[in-house]
């Protein structure tokens, strides 16, 4: 008779926790980082390590200073540092990721009260701050597979300036043989990580798929010479779209809760990204699009609440 245990729900426990999920996301980001280091050389590795260590240090310092619970090892600061580094060019001076990580953690996260309270994706807050503060470092990209730091524009920047993009095939874009940020170039590696997250159910399909499809459809309609003649595959494979759609737009804290809301969020991100790329001042709009939709998330949540069964 002792086998009858009376307890409140939930009765089935999967063993997941916030920090476990965070570490899984970290693991899923590793292939893209390895690819980035292979493509851009050891300086990419030092940028990644610097960003992660300074993100951890910032979290520790701020939590000690504000006398909060120390949660440095829950993985979220590592993700912030990693994502920030993945959004930087490989040959930036190393104080840039340090300042970026501190800004991400301090202004992007701890100011709001720590993990779960922030309204914007911390890594993107850091990136946008660096972009607005030191554009001369943030917009110089280097040639792939050539570790001598020879400058080369990203395909999107070349497109914006009306230059012809030479010798770049879809396969190059897919494998990451192009100028760009450390973690965004190798689509293959990003998809491996994203597939892992999707299969394990850590992220849902709604945001990334609606995001990518919306950007694709919009650029197909408007990016070409006439209507319906755009190079949509180029727009999907270039820039930070895949990295942003799978790893940054899906951040639990800053994206809507319901399926319906997530679809609205994804479509909004896609539209904004395409609009910024085609008609905006910057060649790339993923980070701004996601941040703007982050700001809209509370409203989306309010209007897409699930109806409680039996209520009106």
């Amino acid at each position: 008779m002792n086998k009858l245990i009376v307890s409140p729900a939930p009765h089935l426990y999967k063993g997941e926790s916030v920090s476990r999920i965070m570490w899984m996301v970290v693991a899923s980001l590793i292939p893209a980082g390895v690819a980035g280091i292979f493509i851009f050389g050891p300086s990419a590795l030092s940028v990644i390590i610097t960003a992660v260590i300074s993100a951890l240090a910032a979290e520790l310092i701020l939590q000690v200073a504000t006398k909060r619970k120390i949660t440095v090892f829950d993985g979220s600061a590592v993700i912030t540092g990693l994502l920030l580094a993945y959004n930087l060019p490989a040959h930036v001076p190393l104080w840039l990721p340090v300042i970026g990580s501190f800004f991400s953690i301090a202004i992007g996260k701890q100011v709001f009260g720590g993990l779960g309270q922030n309204i914007f994706n911390p890594a993107l807050v850091g990136r946008v701050f660096l972009m607005a503060s030191w554009p001369k470092y943030m917009t110089v990209f280097t040639q792939p597979l050539n570790y001598d730091a020879i400058a080369q524009a990203t395909p999107l920047a070349a497109l914006k300036e009306g230059k012809i993009i030479e010798h770049i095939t879809y396969l190059d874009l897919f494998l990451g043989k192009r100028g760009g940020c450390i973690g965004e170039v190798c689509i293959l590696a990003l998809l491996i990580g994203a597939g892992f997250l999707l299969i394990r159910g850590y992220i849902s399909w709604q945001i990334p798929f609606t995001y990518i499809i919306t950007t694709g459809v919009f650029t197909y309609i408007f990016a070409g010479k006439g209507l319906f003649a755009g190079d949509w595959l180029f727009h999907i494979l270039s820039g930070g779209l895949i990295l942003g759609a799978f790893f940054m737009a899906t951040d639990y804290v800053t994206s809507p809760l319901t399926t319906k809301g997530q679809i609205v969020f994804g479509i909004g991100c896609g539209l904004l990204t395409a609009i910024i790329r085609l008609w905006g001042g910057y060649p790339e709009g993923v980070s701004y699009a996601i941040l703007m939709m982050n700001a809209a998330t509370p409203i989306i949540d309010r209007f897409t609440k699930n109806r409680v069964y039996g209520s009106r």
Binding site: I107, F129, A132, S133, W134, P135
Partner: peptide
């Protein structure tokens, strides 16, 4: 010293 460009803009002032 590398100036923080954003601080010269209204967004930096808000922050």
């Amino acid at each position: 010293f590398e100036p923080v460009f954003v601080m010269g803009m209204p967004s930096g002032a808000l922050l």
